[in-house]
Design a protein around this nucleic acid. Structure first.
Lengths: 343, 343
DNA sequence: ACGGCTGATCGAACCGGTTCGATTCCCCAT
DNA sequence: ATGGGGAATCGAACCGGTTCGATCAGCCGT
């Protein structure tokens, strides 16, 4: 109720109250064992009495350290990215950093906007999960002089610090699983053209097709945008032709798989009975869906932790690995079975 | 490639290059029409040539404005809170603020930890969605002197700025719907004891029971913690007694509803055939679940936007409404039907 | 031709800390 | 008694901006 607008106490006030100089207060408070026990005691008591808290902005200014890092993700509605956020947040907090998060909604413009914040030195570094595949011009400029770590999505033609999984291998395994089940007529819902993860996953799917003796170019393919609605649309397209309808779908991420399943439900198709579906990411709800989604598990939280660790090492001047690859494995649940005709 | 460790240009460098004083540079860059066109031109050119970006930390220091706000949420794995984040992020960015997010994992300790950051003046204000119901001591201290807005969850015995919904009414409507369907033996999975939202929803459920001519104290009630696993556990408890098994469950949030449904699936109970379920929140996946979840829709994103708006108004010295209540309505989908025996 | 007014520019103080070199004081060895 | 060394403390510079009062031209009217 009281003291609404009283000025916050500064180090000056503490100095005055404890009868020592400003620099002594600073030393007494920050460098243990460097002030005499008696002064330290007096200073601490004065600080407590005034409720003094050092001004972090002022400290940042001459320490040239903001104490916070940034994280750009393309989409907050995708729980996989939220997992990454959770990991980064955790690691950042553990190491005393604040986390600024920015959602770019898959737009380069927003990426550009957030990137420029780095230049104004409000952030010690940034972790980027690109949604456009295009390196924001302003970001690339900075990458040589300021810590930047890419996570999940690699940016075209640029090999900076990176944390992710072997998308190609994981996709190959997923596709091979479907072929192993006996599926021959499959369809692919790919990610956005030009995105590294999308390209890699597609390449993996095709490798498995070749290994199974199929012509990869003959596989029906529709590109989505990694969001739910596009999964429904893509599924609708792929399943339009009743005669040559695929018996299974490889979907480049779980969000689109959710959309595809929703479409099937609306269209009266049974998953996995009429159509097998394999996703990618393993979002937290994947195991709770009906049917539980067979998908490739990406360790989102761990990726976030690893990325934060890498970035903060960079910030602290250590030289971490240039690239970290975490395992991504197929987790078989109930959304894909052998095709109806039998093997 | 080059100029790896070259010092960032400061206003001083711009002044030197353009041959004017530091203050003139500052004025020319920030106060349009206050410097002569010629100087302005020279300054701008010099700034561009050097790639000068003003140091935001230094600016913050004498403007006493951090340019960022904080948001504490209890749980990143709950998409409802993520919706709130998305709304806050959007509004903050639109108004030129950065958003620092902190996940407290339902722990007062973490809330306390984040709260104290406010005192160090790195944040201009904070939006809090409490996960403990307990006002962090350090936060309460500050609330009278620093902008704080509570969202979704109200803190015990404290009536600061708040954005949320009428939980009681919404819960009453949800319960009334179930009674209207003909259910008489229902069970309740409540939220954590002591949380305002949990109390309110419970109160609403009971009011509807009374209105339906039932003794609210006779309704089986198990408290969960708003997380998935507890929903499964609670459902298991409530459904244990085969003879007096409820025909429907009122679940205080969607995450627990997800858990409850998963339990039913594992236990061989059909939802909605054997058991109706009504949730609360309307997380984005609710409509995509099988069956699609009947639940109370809380406009998470809008709550976030409203909270950010309120906080930033507070920061800007305007005096916003003390409390904003957004509508929360039942959205009927497929997880509850009339009980098997008929009405 | 000169005083006064206006607009552009400048110097200095300030925001709130950290840090470094200088100073003071005390104690002990010579 | 005196000089040297070390610990505690201090003053001042600095981080990189903003802002305010002072200064300085240039131009006007009379």
């Amino acid at each position: 109720m009281a003291e609404l607008s009283r000025r916050r106490p500064t180090i000056r006030d503490v100095a005055r109250l404890s009868g020592v100089s400003i620099s002594t207060v600073s030393v007494a408070l920050n460098t243990p064992g460097s002030a005499s026990p008696a002064t330290r005691e007096r200073v601490v008591r004065a600080a407590a009495e005034l409720g003094y808290q050092p001004n972090a902005t002022a400290r940042s200014l001459n320490l040239r350290r903001a104490g916070s890092i940034g994280l750009m993700v393309p989409d907050l509605s995708n729980a996989y990215f939220v997992n990454i956020i959770a990991g980064v947040e955790r690691e950042a907090r553990d190491r005393g950093y604040l986390l600024v998060v920015g959602a770019t909604d898959w737009q380069t413009a927003a990426e550009e906007q957030y990137s420029s914040l780095l230049r104004t030195q409000r952030l010690d570094g940034v972790i980027v999960s690109s949604g456009s595949g295009l390196p924001p011009a302003s970001l690339l400029e900075l990458v040589s002089v300021e810590p930047v770590v890419f996570v999940d999505e690699r940016v075209a033609g640029f090999d900076g610090h990176f944390v992710g999984v072997d998308n190609r291998r994981a996709a190959r395994v997923a596709a091979a699983y479907l072929f192993g089940l006996g599926h021959r007529r499959i369809g692919i819902i790919g990610g956005p053209l030009g995105l590294w993860t999308a390209d890699q996953r597609l390449a993996g799917y095709r490798e498995a097709a070749v290994a199974a003796g199929l012509d990869p170019d003959s596989i029906p393919l529709v590109h989505g945008d990694y969001q739910i609605a596009s999964g429904s649309r893509a599924a609708a397209q792929l399943l339009a032709d009743d005669d040559a309808r695929p018996t299974a779908l490889l979907v480049a991420n779980d969000m689109m798989a959710v959309g595809a399943i929703a479409h099937c439900r609306d269209a009266g198709l049974d998953v996995p009975g009429d159509l097998g579906i394999v996703g990618f990411d393993d979002i937290p709800t994947a195991s709770l869906m009906t049917p539980p989604l067979t998908t490739v598990r990406q360790p989102g939280r761990e990726l976030g932790i690893a990325a934060a660790r890498m970035l903060l090492d960079l910030v602290d001047g250590r030289e971490p690995e240039r690239s970290v690859t975490l395992p991504a494995d197929l987790v078989v649940r109930g959304s894909a079975l052998p095709p109806k005709g039998g093997v």
